[in-house]
């Protein structure tokens, strides 16, 4: 009896705290039915926002994966002075407020920033333009690939790499044929976290974007504009789409586990 009460309380709390918010998103989007909801997605500014979000995510994934892999290699394969400081440094963006993550780029490239005016004069627009959005997103998503790779690569040690080196393999061959295949699940997971965070980033991007519909609005910014403009259905439809994209990236991280389990069940 006591057990059922505990279950009821727990599920009640989960329902209120965790289940209701996503339900609200979908219900608000479909308030007038599916037709009107889908209609709002045809708005050219909305389509532009989706494209910009995909572009920004792609850039963040590529840059932070390449550099994240190299940094994880550096931090796990060598013991050198300054290593622990670097470990702290790459995790730093996680503890910085999104707004601050955007602000720093204005300090460097904004109209009153250190290099903003001269770059502006040379015709290079960074703040309140797409490059600024990219920089802010890159900053915010920087840690994810490294921090998922480092613990795993640390635990794997250097024996396999050393064996490969003695067999005559060069750096890229070791990385590509030995290290990364061994760490592929962690790498995959790190890339997906980067993706989810890049698509959903709001605060940092909001500061540097300039909010020009159709030009510098990513999906989260467009959702804000729509919501503040009382276009509730459009806002929640876009929110449903964005949440589905980000959450499928997060959920996809368990895919290797499912595949392995299914293979195990067959064998």
């Amino acid at each position: 009896m006591k057990k059922y009460l505990l279950w009821a309380i727990t599920w009640g709390l989960i329902g209120i705290v965790l289940l209701m918010p996503p339900a609200v998103v979908v219900v608000e989007a479909l308030k007038n039915g599916l037709g009107p909801a889908l209609e709002t997605l045809k708005d050219p500014d909305g389509i532009a926002a989706i494209w910009l979000t995909l572009e920004v995510s792609l850039v963040s994934i590529s840059v932070n994966t390449i550099f994240g892999v190299l940094a994880a290699w550096l931090l796990t394969k060598y013991r050198f002075p300054g290593r622990s400081a670097l470990l702290v440094l790459v995790e730093l963006p996680l503890s910085i407020s999104p707004v601050v993550s955007g602000l720093v780029w204005l300090l460097l490239f904004g109209a009153q920033g250190w290099w903003g005016p001269s770059l502006e004069a040379a015709g290079i627009h960074i703040a309140f333009a797409v490059p600024g959005i990219m920089l802010a997103t890159l900053f915010v998503t920087l840690p994810y690939v490294v921090r998922t790779l480092v613990p795993l690569m640390e635990q794997q040690g250097c024996d396999a790499e050393e064996a490969a080196m003695l067999a005559g393999a060069n750096f890229w061959q070791i990385l590509w044929h030995v290290t990364l295949p061994g760490a592929r699940v962690a790498l995959f997971s790190g890339i997906l976290l980067t993706t989810a965070r890049a698509m959903g980033e709001f605060g940092a991007v909001s500061v540097v974007s300039g909010h020009i519909p159709g030009l510098t609005e990513t999906m989260p910014l467009h959702i804000e504009s729509l919501y503040n403009g009382y276009q509730t259905v459009a806002a929640f439809t876009m929110a449903t789409l964005l949440a589905a994209m980000a959450m499928s990236a997060v959920l996809l991280r368990s895919a290797p586990e499912w595949i392995a389990r299914r293979r195990g069940a067959q064998a």
């Binding site: 024996d159 396999a160 050393e162 064996a163 490969a164 003695l166 044929h177 030995v178 295949p181 061994g182």
Partner: peptide, 10 residues
Amino acid sequence: GFVFQNYALF
């Protein structure tokens, strides 16, 4: 040729 203590097979 080097053989590691715990073999270090890929």
